[in-house]
């Protein structure tokens, strides 16, 4: 992330289908320094069919299946990056939609981290107009990200509603037990055989 914008590409796909889709085009660009992370545990598929996979691959879009803000302004935006945070966000959204049905929630699936940066900083960056359209100008944004939140702060500090960003993220070491205590990870101990 400290390399020049021209050589850095970061893709954090939410599921295996999307990983396949992200993996596809990359080998064609050998000089770039790329990082593609996937979870360590097999997870469920967020997007099943090819059409959705394509939509996910473009990344940083509404996850229409989980959002209920179609046609109206959302009350809250909940972006998620990579497998486990996406799963947790979806679980949180399903609870909230069950208990607070009037709440309009927009789930944004962030795959390409570099889209968060301004267009002027990175070739993948979204324009301010697109960014505001996706993350709104003033609504609270609860970002699920299992790494250090300041990375996202750094990428988004110039955006209009950057001050409304809050994180469900790791604040210390990205370690299982720490995650558990930071509240970023649901404990999932292995069965004792």
């Amino acid at each position: 992330m400290n390399k020049k914008a021209e050589v850095v590409r970061v893709y954090l796909p939410p599921d295996a289908n999307c990983l396949l889709s992200v993996n596809g085009p990359l080998p064609a660009q050998p000089p770039l320094r790329q990082r593609r992370d996937r979870g360590q545990t097999p997870g469920p598929a967020v997007a099943g069919d090819g059409r959705r996979r394509q939509a996910l691959h473009r990344g940083n879009r509404h996850l229409a299946v989980a959002s209920n803000d179609q046609g109206v302004a959302p009350d809250v935006v909940m972006p998620a990056v990579a497998t486990v945070p996406t799963l947790e966000t979806l679980a949180a959204v399903s609870i909230m939609r069950g208990h607070l049905p009037k709440l309009k929630i927009r789930v944004v699936n962030v795959v390409d981290l570099m889209k968060l940066q301004p267009q002027t900083e990175h070739p993948h960056g979204l324009s301010d107009m697109d960014f505001d359209g996706l993350f709104t100008k003033d609504k609270p944004v609860i970002f699920a990200f299992h790494a250090y939140p300041w990375l996202i702060h750094r990428l988004t500090y110039r955006r209009t509603n950057h001050t409304t960003f809050t994180f469900a993220a790791t604040r210390k070491r990205a370690h299982y037990h720490t995650l558990r205590h930071d509240g970023a990870e649901r404990p999932r101990p292995l069965p004792i055989s």
């Binding site: 009350d75 809250v76 909230m96 607070l100 709440l103 609270p140 609860i142 469900a168």
Partner: peptide, 21 residues
């Protein structure tokens, strides 16, 4: 729960849900 904290419009229902969670 963080989300509910940031949405005062959820009111008593939100507080109740948070307690349940």
């Amino acid at each position: 729960m963080d989300t509910i904290d940031r949405l005062p419009q959820t009111g008593d229902k939100g507080i109740y849900l948070k307690q349940q969670l």
